[in-house]
Measured scan of single mutants.
Amino acid sequence: KKYKIKVYVKDKKTKKWKKIKEIEVDTKEEALEAIKKLPPNYEVKIVP
């Protein structure tokens, strides 16, 4: 079972969220580790 991490950042001009990358991992633990490495201003969604 794979997890997709969708990473969004808020556009300063439009104030809208835009997706900047998608990370695919195998476990939820890996997903949480990957999220920890991202800057705090990123919004993250984990999709099972």
Rank of each mutant, 00 (worst) to 15 (best):
T14L: 05
K37F: 06
K19G: 02
T14V: 03
I23E: 03
Y8N: 00
Y8C: 03
I23A: 02
E33G: 05
K28I: 13
I5P: 00
K21T: 13
D26R: 06
K12S: 10
E24P: 06
P40I: 09
T27W: 02
K28R: 14
K16F: 05
E33F: 03
K10E: 05
I35K: 04
I23W: 15
V25P: 00
K36H: 08
L32R: 10
V7R: 00
D26Y: 11
L32H: 09
K28G: 04
I23F: 14
Y42F: 12
K28W: 15
K45A: 09
A34V: 15
K18T: 10
P40Q: 11
I5W: 03
E24W: 14
K28P: 11
K36Y: 05
K37L: 12
K36C: 10
K19Q: 11
K2G: 11
L32E: 10
K19A: 04
D11V: 07
K13T: 08
E22Y: 03
K37Q: 12
K4G: 02
I20T: 03
K6N: 10
P39M: 08
I5F: 06
K37Y: 07
K21F: 14
P48K: 14
Y42M: 08
K12L: 12
K4V: 14
K45V: 15
L32Y: 14
A31V: 14
T14C: 04
K36W: 04
K37W: 06
P48C: 15
P40H: 12
D26T: 08
K21V: 10
Y8M: 02
E30A: 11
Y3M: 06
K10Q: 13
K36S: 13
N41F: 14
I46S: 01
V47D: 05
V9T: 07
E33W: 03
P48F: 13
K45C: 15
L38H: 02
K4F: 07
W17F: 06
E43T: 15
K1Q: 14
E43D: 09
E33I: 10
K10I: 14
V44I: 12
Y3R: 01
K2V: 07
L38G: 01
V9A: 10
K10D: 01
V7H: 00
A34G: 02
P48W: 12
I46G: 02
D26A: 10
K13G: 07
I35P: 00
E33R: 11
K16M: 07
A34K: 09
K10H: 08
P39L: 11
D26Q: 09
L32K: 07
V47Y: 12
I20L: 10
V44G: 09
K6F: 15
D26W: 13
L32P: 01
A34R: 10
E22H: 03
K15Y: 03
E33N: 10
V44S: 07
K13V: 13
K4L: 14
E29T: 07
P48H: 12
E30P: 00
Y3C: 05
D26M: 09
